[in-house]
Simulated scan of single mutants.
Amino acid sequence: MFTALLQVALGGALGASARYLTGIAITRAVGHGFPVAIMVTNVLGSFLMGVLVVVLAKKGGTAYAPLLMTGLLGGFTTFSAFSLDALTLFERGQVTAAAGYVLGSVVFSLIAIVLGVWIARMVLA
C-alpha cells in the first residue's frame, strides 16, 4: 500500500509539472482568452489514458498503474481547472464559448480515449 502511495505521489508531481509546462507552452502559442491549454491537456491526457490502459493490461504492467494512471495522468489532467474555466466564461457572459468549451472538452476527450485504446490495440496486436 505504501509503495502505491509513493507511486501516486511521484506520478502526481510529475503530471502536475507537465501540465504546468504544457499550459505555458500552449498559452504562449495561442494566447489568452479561450482556455485552449486546459482543453488540450485533458484531451491529450484522455488519449494517453487509453493507450496506457491497453499497454499495461497486455504487458502485465498493472503494478505501474498507480504511478502512471492515477499519479501522472491524474496530475496532468485538470477537470477542476476545467470547471473553473467553464464557470468563468459563463460568468463573463460568454455562454456560447462556455458551452463550446464544455462540449468540446468532453467530446474530444472521449474520442481521444477511444483512439488511444484503438491505436494501442493495433500496435500490440
Results as ranks from 00 to 15, higher is better:
Ser80Asp: 01
Ala16Lys: 04
Gly31Cys: 03
Leu103Tyr: 02
Ala120Asn: 00
Tyr20Ala: 09
Gly23Glu: 07
Arg92Glu: 10
Ala112His: 07
Leu73Arg: 08
Ala112Cys: 09
Ala99Thr: 10
Val123Arg: 09
Val40Phe: 11
Val123Gly: 11
Pro66His: 07
Leu124His: 04
Tyr64Val: 12
Ala112Thr: 07
Gly75Ala: 12
Ala97Gly: 04
Leu72Phe: 11
Phe82Pro: 07
Ala97Leu: 12
Leu5Thr: 15
Val95Trp: 06
Thr96Ala: 10
Lys58Ile: 10
Gly71Trp: 09
Arg121Leu: 10
Leu10Val: 14
Ala4Gly: 10
Ala97Asn: 00
Leu5Val: 15
Leu5Pro: 05
Val51Asp: 04
Gln7His: 11
Val55Ser: 03
Val106Gly: 10
Ala81Phe: 11
Val53Gly: 09
Thr70Gly: 13
Asn42Thr: 04
Ala4Tyr: 06
Arg121Phe: 02
Ser46Lys: 06
Val102Thr: 13
Val43Phe: 06
Val106Trp: 09
Ala29Pro: 01
Leu115Gly: 01
Ile113His: 03
Leu124Pro: 02
Ala13Asp: 01
Gly11Tyr: 03
His32Asp: 14
Thr96Pro: 00
Thr62Cys: 05
Lys58Leu: 14
Met122Asn: 11
Val30Gly: 07
Leu110Arg: 09
Leu21Ala: 15
Gly93His: 02
Leu115Val: 08
Leu84Phe: 14
Arg28His: 14
Lys59Arg: 15
Ser105Gly: 11
Ala120Leu: 01
Met122Arg: 13
Ala9Asn: 08
Ser83Ile: 04
Met49Asn: 00
Gly45Arg: 02
Ala81His: 08
Gly11Glu: 00
Val54Asn: 06
Gly31Thr: 01
Pro66Gly: 07
Ala86Asp: 03
Ala86Phe: 02
Ile113Asn: 04
Arg19Ala: 06
Thr27Gln: 11
Val95Glu: 01
Ala86Asn: 05
Val30Cys: 11
Thr70Trp: 12
Ile26Phe: 12
Pro35Ala: 08
Tyr20Pro: 02
Gln94Tyr: 05
Thr62Phe: 13
Ala37Asn: 03
Thr62Val: 13
Leu14Met: 10
Met49Glu: 00
Tyr64Asp: 12
Tyr64Ser: 15
Thr78Met: 14
Gly61Met: 05
Ala16Val: 03
Ala125Ile: 06
Leu84Asn: 09
Leu14Gln: 03
Phe2Glu: 13
Thr78Asn: 12
Ala25Phe: 11
Gly45Ile: 02
Ile26Ser: 08
Ala63Ser: 13
Tyr101Lys: 06
Val30Gln: 05
Ser46Phe: 01
Leu73Asp: 04
Gln94Ile: 03
Ala4Asn: 14
Phe47Glu: 02
Leu68Cys: 09
Gly45Asp: 00
Thr41Ile: 15
Arg121Asp: 13
Leu6Gln: 10
Asn42Val: 07
Gly12Phe: 08
Gly11Leu: 02
Leu56Cys: 06
Leu68Val: 09
Val8His: 13
Phe34Ser: 04
Thr88Asp: 13
Ser80Met: 04
Phe108Asn: 06
Met1Gly: 15
Leu87Met: 15
Arg19Leu: 08
Leu87Asn: 14
Gly15Asn: 09
His32Lys: 14
Val53His: 10
Thr41Asn: 05
Thr78Ile: 08
